[in-house]
Design a protein around this nucleic acid. Sequence first.
DNA 1: TCCGTAATTAGTAATGATTACTACTTAATA
DNA 2: TATTAAGTAGTAATCATTACTAATTACGGA
Lengths: 124, 124
Amino acid sequence: MRFSRQRQVVYQTLQQTDTHPDAQWVYNKVREVLPNISLGTVYRNLNELCCAGMVKRISASDNVERFDARTASHAHFVCRCCGKIDDVFDSNVDVGETHGTVESVEVMVYGVCSECMKGGNYCG
Amino acid sequence: MRFSRQRQVVYQTLQQTDTHPDAQWVYNKVREVLPNISLGTVYRNLNELCCAGMVKRISASDNVERFDARTASHAHFVCRCCGKIDDVFDSNVDVGETHGTVESVEVMVYGVCSECMKGGNYCG
DNA sequence: TCCGTAATTAGTAATGATTACTACTTAATA
DNA sequence: TATTAAGTAGTAATCATTACTAATTACGGA
C-alpha cells in the first residue's frame, strides 16, 4: 500500500477526532487541507485503511458507516436520538451515569464462518 | 398501532426464520402470501415493529439493515465474507469452535445520551 | 537523478437501500 | 353499520456508497 498525500491526511484527520465520524465529515475536514480531494477518494482510503487494520468501521443503525482510528478494543455508547457515539473505555464505569440511559447492549462477534473458511471464500 | 394483515404477515415471516434477513428478503417471502404488498409497506412495518419493541434492528457493516424477531438478549456472530449472522445464545460456547474464526468483538450500548434527555430531544 | 509502471486520484455516472408522497383502502371503535 | 384515523400500493425522490475512466503520482531500480 502506497502512502499518498490524500491517504495521509485522511488517516491523520481520523486520528485527530474522537467523534467517530462518517465519510462525509471526513471529506469536509480533509478539504480544509486538500480542497480538490474527491469524496470517492475518501471512501476508498477509509476502506483501504480498514483492510490494513489501521481503522475500524462502526455500524450503528443509522444507515451511515462511521470510522474510528482507535483500534484498541473498546465499547461504544450510541444515542438513538442524536446518533452520537461515545467511547466507553473503562469497563468499571457506570454507563448509565456517565453517558446516558441504557436501553440495550449488543454484542457482535466478527470473523469468518466455518463454511467460508472451508469453501475458500476467505477474503483477506 | 393497528394490526393489519400486512403487518401480521411481516411479523410472522420474521418470527419463522433465524437468518436475520433484510427488508428485501422479507419482502420476497411475504409476497408468497400477499403478492400485492409493496416494499415500502414492508419497510414501514419493520420500523413500526421495531418502535413497538417486537423486532430488533441489526446493523452489521454491509450497508443493509437486518431484522430479528427474537428480542431476548443474545449475541451475534457476523461473517465478514458471506455476511451471514448466527445467533450466539449460550455464553459458555466456544464461538471460535462453533461458528468460525473470531477476529474481533464489538460491544455497543444503545440508549439516549444525557444531552438528549435534558434537551427534550428524547424521541419515544 | 531519471524512468517505468502500477497504484492512486478527480470527476462523474451508476447503483442500491431506504424514505417520502399521495390518493385509495381498511381495521377498529362507537 | 357508519366513521375515521391508520395503513397501503405504487411511484418518485433521496442519500450513501461504489464503479468507471483518463490523467496523475509514489516509489523501486537503473
